[in-house]
Amino acid sequence: MASKNRIKMSFPSGSENVAIARVTAAAFAAQLDLTLNDIEEIKVAVSEAISNAVIHGYGDQPGEIEFTLSLDGDRLEFVVTDYGKGIADIEQARQPSFSTDPERMGLGFVFMESFMDELAVESAVGKGTTVRMAKRVPAAPAH
């Protein structure tokens, strides 16, 4: 089994690419011996990060999203970067039920935080946002 691997992809901001990104993440994660729940958690967290880039980063304007998937031992890392609007107040954005849109739940960061073991957000207004999240997967017992 591969203990180190990395895939880097770049695609235009658009809702049709959210599913492609999360399915890629699930396929990448399947290099490790994961449960269905782990895979689902990764898919949801990645879906939230990419959706945020499309909806909030670019606000439906054209833009490029970079998505890097890395595996190092038992650690899976997913990094999503956009070069859009940026987040003025990251602490506020990470609060449950904070949303700039009343039809949305403000749960994006809650899911990323709950479903991943590490979450770091870097952002600069007018420059863009990078969301870095990682999940540690304990080695499966030998049988």
């Binding site: 898919k43 949801v44 879906s47 739940m105």
Partner: peptide, 13 residues
């Protein structure tokens, strides 16, 4: 087979 906060937001609405 899959739902995230966008789908849940529609249901909540």
């Amino acid at each position: 087979t899959f739902v995230d906060s966008s789908g849940l937001g529609v249901i909540l609405g």
